[in-house]
Design a protein around this nucleic acid. Structure first.
Length: 605
RNA sequence: GCGGCUAUAGCUCAGUGGAUUAGAGCGUUUGGUUGCGGACCAAAAGGCCGGGGGUUCGAGUCCCUCUAGCCGCACCA
């Protein structure tokens, strides 16, 4: 929030160092000083200056010289308004803020900017985030939820950081797995249809697992079992052939069952408050994508080995790399049918050309890391400057204690099961702790807290790590969890509601802190001031985790403040008004940060 | 074989090359009478930051190497 002033001070420090004969990098990097009752920003620039002197041949003791420089700089440099003093601490130069004006400025900004507090300046760059790429004819499990939440949080963070952001989903509605489910439906369950959006989608998963089992060779098959299996296999192959040929009956069955899946998918996106701007369906890009293969061949990027082989891009060879790195990618099968790569290359082109995307982010699991490096490299060879701004946000799998989830085996934990269980548990806690809550509120709050707990459990771990799903950990309501953070929000809300009822609503206008602040207050204000920087850092690193860490810190600090510092019970009217403003500012920032994680802030709980 | 990711407290994990003593949560132990809401707070115990080199004034963090685990490498997605 004080970048401009700090830049000015940095310039003055650079000048002072130059004057002392110890030139340092012109850019002075600041970082928060360790908290000790007052706050400021510090720089280690004098270390760099002293080290540079040593390297230039002067005989200097670097730490001692750095301390000396820091002392001299602190004496020479004058400060702009809003700062109290410039201090040399060991070799660091620390600029301390004027307490009252810093506190007032931060709190006033949070209150007046409201939901926009923390938003970055517009970046004049358009970003597309592709996430939520479930296959149809399967159901949405907790691993898909990790993808969807990670992508949504990333999209919200990019948007809030100042990028124009488009959300894209790319459902896989083609291929052998899809056909297997359709065949299973036609062969064994034709005409049946469970009621309910979720029930239908989940039923398709069961059919798929059942069909897969029938098609899989068993350990001690009898001859007749083998015969039966091979006969099923032939049926499925025939089914696939008919689908490919555009057989009306198979196509109609495919469309109907596909819609069941898409309905379920949409219902889940609604639950998670995810609004996708653009859907790219695999079935819709399949045929058109073949055109780009010809273009890549014509431009000498791809080699056509048909009929004896597929169409490939020998990336290492094209780049002149002696050592294998990107290797070779097949972009079209020898029989002329498409692969994932065919479609991804075409989609990238569409993103760049039709949607004018400057930066393209892919939220896809880590197993496809090499693949995306290859795709991005081909885009570069193809001549798209945006290729440099393609980024694969790779994330680890959600596994079960007994091993990997498998749709084929039906060994999955469905997102809806988890959401339902979370809801039940929150209901139980509310019944115990807040029995007076009316039915409608209880329902709303249970949904907000239950989904929040799941979302936070999935977002509080670095995206690259695998998560072993365990019910108790995912649905924890204590400690580092969404309910803990939501509780901080509710407490702040409760104080403010009481204040309003008592006619003690916070005064209009700017924050006014003309008194010695308690350490707990200082810490809280310090964290509020950091929020805009956290948003930028999260966007820069593509890491929702930074926001998850931050909002927990903020909640924890507020809980501490709550216990230590009286607000409504403060006798002094000036302090009470200031603290009410601080509480209002904290409530706002908690809500803003939670919103970036797609977690709602309940009014009561 | 080549490459990527991971290794930090009993467990699960944070940790911008920089700040006395590497931080949380869970679990363990102990405390918080009347609540601005106890889904909370305070305190204690618990660490060769996988091993070994290197760069640097300074390394959990950067480089090299070794070990262990997971993953990927031409017509799967």
């Amino acid at each position: 929030m004080f970048e401009r002033e700090l830049a000015v001070i940095g310039e003055r420090i650079s000048q002072a160092l130059a004057g002392l004969g110890a030139p340092a990098p012109s850019e002075v990097k600041w970082q928060p000083t360790p908290f000790a009752g007052e706050w400021g920003q510090g720089t280690n620039i004098c270390f760099q200056a002293a080290a540079a002197e040593a390297r230039s041949g002067k005989k200097v003791n670097v730490p001692a010289r750095a301390q000396e420089l820091a002392r001299l700089v602190a004496e020479q440099v004058t400060l702009p308004p809003g700062f109290s003093r410039l201090v040399a601490d060991k070799a660091y130069v620390n600029a301390y803020f004027d307490t009252a004006s810093f506190a007032g400025r931060v709190v006033a900004a949070a209150i007046t900017e409201g939901a926009a507090f923390g938003r970055g300046a517009p970046k004049s760059e358009r970003v597309m985030v592709e996430y939520a790429q479930p296959n149809t004819h399967h159901s949405f499990h907790i691993g898909h939820a990790r993808n969807a939440l990670l992508g949504e949080a990333l999209a919200r963070i990019m948007e809030f950081a100042g990028f124009e952001t488009i959300r894209a989903s790319y459902p896989g509605d083609l291929g052998l797995t899809v056909i297997t489910a359709v065949w299973g439906y036609k062969r064994f369950h034709y005409g049946q249809e469970p009621e309910g959006v979720f029930e239908r989608g989940e039923w398709l998963l069961k059919i798929y697992a059942e069909a897969t089992a029938l098609l899989t060779e068993q350990p001690n098959e009898t001859p007749s079992e083998t015969e039966q299996r091979l006969s099923y296999e032939a049926e499925r192959r025939e089914f696939y052939r008919r689908y490919d040929a555009g057989d009306p009956e198979v196509r109609a069955l495919w469309r109907m069952t596909r819609q069941w899946s898409l309905d379920e998918f949409q219902a889940i996106l609604d639950m998670l408050a995810i609004h996708i701007d653009v859907f790219f369906f695999e079935s819709e890009v399949d045929e058109p994508s073949k055109a780009i293969v010809d273009e890549l061949i014509a431009r000498g990027i791809a080699e056509d080995l048909r009929p004896d082989g597929p169409v490939v891009v020998k990336i290492d060879e094209k780049l002149g790399l002696a050592k294998e790195k990107y290797r070779t990618v097949v972009i079209l099968r020898s029989d002329g049918t498409t692969l994932y790569s065919t479609k991804d290359l075409m989609l990238a082109k569409v993103k760049f050309e039709k949607y004018s995307v400057d930066r393209s982010l892919y939220v896809v699991d880590f197993r496809q890391s090499l693949y995306f490096q290859q795709v991005f490299k081909i885009l570069e060879l193809w001549g798209f400057p945006q290729a440099a701004k393609c980024y694969h946000l790779s994330y680890g799998y959600v596994t079960l204690p007994g091993g990997a989830m498998s749709s084929r085996k039906g060994h999955v934990v469905l997102f809806r099961e988890v959401a339902d269980e979370a809801y039940r548990r929150v209901q139980a806690v509310i019944a115990e702790r807040n029995p007076d809550l009316d039915e409608a509120q209880r329902h709303t709050v249970s949904t907000q807290i239950g989904l929040g707990a799941i979302a936070y459990a999935l977002l509080e771990v670095d995206n690259i790590r695998d998560i072993v799903f365990e019910w108790e950990a995912a649905l924890s309501f204590d400690g580092r969890s969404a309910p803990y953070i939501q509780n901080a929000y509710v407490r702040a809300n409760s104080i403010l509601k009481k204040a309003q009822a008592a006619g003690l609503a916070p005064a209009e206008g700017t924050g006014n802190f003309p008194f010695a602040l308690e350490p707990a207050e200082v810490e809280l204000i310090d964290l509020l001031a950091r929020f805009p920087g956290v948003v930028q850092q999260a966007a820069l690193d593509y890491k929702p985790l930074h926001v998850a860490n931050y909002v927990y810190e903020l909640a924890k600090t507020f809980h501490g403040f709550y216990h230590l510092v009286p607000v409504l019970q403060t006798e002094d009217a000036v302090r009470r008004a200031a603290r009410l403003q601080l509480v209002a500012a904290t409530r706002q920032v908690l809500a803003n940060a939670l919103r970036l994680l797609a977690i709602q802030a309940p009014d009561v709980m």
